[in-house]
Design a protein around this nucleic acid. Structure first.
Lengths: 230, 230
DNA sequence: CAGTGTGAAGTTGTTCACAGCA
DNA sequence: TGCTGTGAACAACTTCACACTG
C-alpha cells in the first residue's frame, strides 16, 4: 500500500475536496432523499449518474469523499448515502449567521425556511436604511448596522451573509472579518478579498445570468451555422 | 494575420467561452462601472487583476473574448470596457422570462429591480398554490399555472425561471421546453435534463452553502494541524 | 455480468515566460 | 519601464479502461 504524505514545505497541506464535487453533492443528496421517500433502499452510481446527468465514474469518485462504501452489484444503501452526505456537507451542526442588507434578496433569504435542515441559521439581520430597520421578516427583526458590533462580540457567529450593494460589500466584509467571522457568503457582484483564514463564496446572481445568456446565444449561433453549412 | 477556421468534421463548431470566464465578467463590468463613476478613464489588466483577485493574464485572456483592445502602457479605456462587456454579456437586448413558483425566492426575484439593466425582464409569474395565485408582487400578478400554455403561445418568451420545489422541477421544465422555451434558470436543487437545443443554468442555493461549509471546515482543520505540527 | 473502485489518458482552465510596443 | 498579448508549461477536473468482487 502506497501512501503519499505531501509533507513538502508548507505549500498546500490538505488537497481539499474539488469544488465541482461539492457542488454536485447536494444534487445527490436530493436524489437520495426522494428515493428514500419512494421506499427504495439501494441505488447504483450508474443510475445516480443517469438521473443527475454526469459521468458514472464521477459519481463514484465524488461519493468516495464521503467515505460511504458501496456494495458491488447492489450499489449504495440509500440511508447510508443520506447520512454520509448530510454529515459531509455539514448539515448536521448548525452554523449561525448574520445577514447584512435586508433588501429584496436579503428578505427573501430571511424568509427561506429551507436553511434549517441545511446547517444554517440566520440569527440577526442588519441594514442602514431607516425605511427597512425595524421591519420584522419571518420572525426576525432587522436591526441597525450600528448594533452589529455589540452583537458580534456577544454571540459567536461564524457566517456573514452579504446581500448589499456592490459599493459597500468590501468594507462591510472587512468589518465582519475584524469582528471574527469565519465565512462569508457574498451575493453582491463585487468579488471581495479576504485574508487566508477566512472563506468566501461568491454567489453573484449576474454571473449566472451571464452564463445563461451566453450559452443561449452560442447555441442559437451554432444552429444558424448548421443551417448554412449543410 | 492567421485565422484558423475550425472546419473539422462536425464535432464542435464553436469552442465557446469558458464558463469560469463568463462568471468573472460581471465582476469586471461592475469594477469598470465604479471606475467610470469615479471619473477614471483608463485601467490596466494588472490593476483589474489585483482588485478582483485573479491572475493578470487571466484578465487579459478573459477580456480578449469581448474583442476589446487595450493600449500598451495605458491599459483599457473604461468606457470601451463597459460597452464591450455589456454587449458581450447580452445585457443590451431584452430577454423576456416567465417565472414558475412564486414562493419566497420567486417573489424575491420578482421584486429584484436589477434585472432590467441586465437583459432580463420577468413578464409573468405562475404558481399552483391558491394562497399565492392572485397576489401582486412588484406590479406583477401571480397567475395560475393553467394559464401558462395560453400565454406561452401568444408571447414568444425565451427564458423560464424555476423557483419551485425539487419534485416538480423536471416535469415543469419538460412543459416549458415543449412550449418553446430556449433557456432555463433553475434554482431548485434538482439538476434537470434538457435536449441539446435548450440551455440550463443551475443556481442551487445549497450548492453554494456546501462549498462554503466545506471550505470553512477544511481551513479550521488545517489551522489545527499547523498548531500541532509546529 | 453488473457493479465498485482506481490508475492512466485526455481535456479544460490557469499560470508562467517572454516577445513586442510606446 | 509598464503594459498587452500569446505560446508553452502546469494544474485541476473528467473520462476511459480495466482489475476485482459477490
Amino acid at each position: 500500500m502506497i501512501m503519499v504524505e505531501n509533507s513538502q514545505s508548507s505549500k498546500k497541506i490538505t488537497p481539499g475536496v474539488p469544488e465541482p464535487t461539492l457542488r454536485r453533492m447536494p444534487a445527490y443528496l436530493n436524489m437520495a432523499k426522494s428515493l428514500h421517500r419512494e421506499g427504495i433502499t439501494h441505488i447504483s452510481s450508474t443510475r445516480i449518474a443517469r438521473d443527475v446527468g454526469v459521468d458514472p465514474t464521477q459519481v463514484t469518485k465524488d461519493l468516495a469523499f464521503t467515505q460511504v462504501v458501496g456494495k458491488t452489484k447492489v450499489g449504495y444503501a440509500v440511508i447510508d448515502l443520506i447520512e454520509s452526505l448530510q454529515d459531509f456537507l455539514g448539515y448536521k451542526k448548525m452554523n449561525e449567521a448574520f445577514l447584512i442588507g435586508a433588501g429584496n434578496l436579503g428578505k427573501a433569504l430571511m424568509s427561506y425556511n429551507g436553511f434549517d435542515d441545511h446547517g444554517l441559521k440566520i440569527i440577526a439581520a442588519f441594514d442602514i436604511n431607516p425605511a427597512i430597520v425595524g421591519m420584522e421578516v419571518n420572525g426576525l427583526k432587522v436591526l441597525h448596522f450600528d448594533k452589529f458590533r455589540d452583537l458580534a462580540e456577544r454571540m459567536h457567529v461564524s457566517v456573514g451573509i452579504l446581500t448589499l450593494p456592490a459599493e459597500s460589500a468590501q468594507s462591510v466584509a472587512d468589518l465582519l472579518i475584524a469582528w471574527g467571522i469565519k465565512g462569508i457568503w457574498n451575493f453582491s457582484p463585487q468579488i471581495i478579498k479576504v485574508p487566508s483564514h477566512v472563506t468566501v463564496v461568491n454567489t453573484s446572481i449576474y454571473a449566472n445570468l451571464a452564463v445563461l445568456f451566453n450559452k443561449m446565444s452560442t447555441l442559437e449561433q451554432q444552429y444558424k451555422n448548421n443551417l448554412i453549412n449543410r
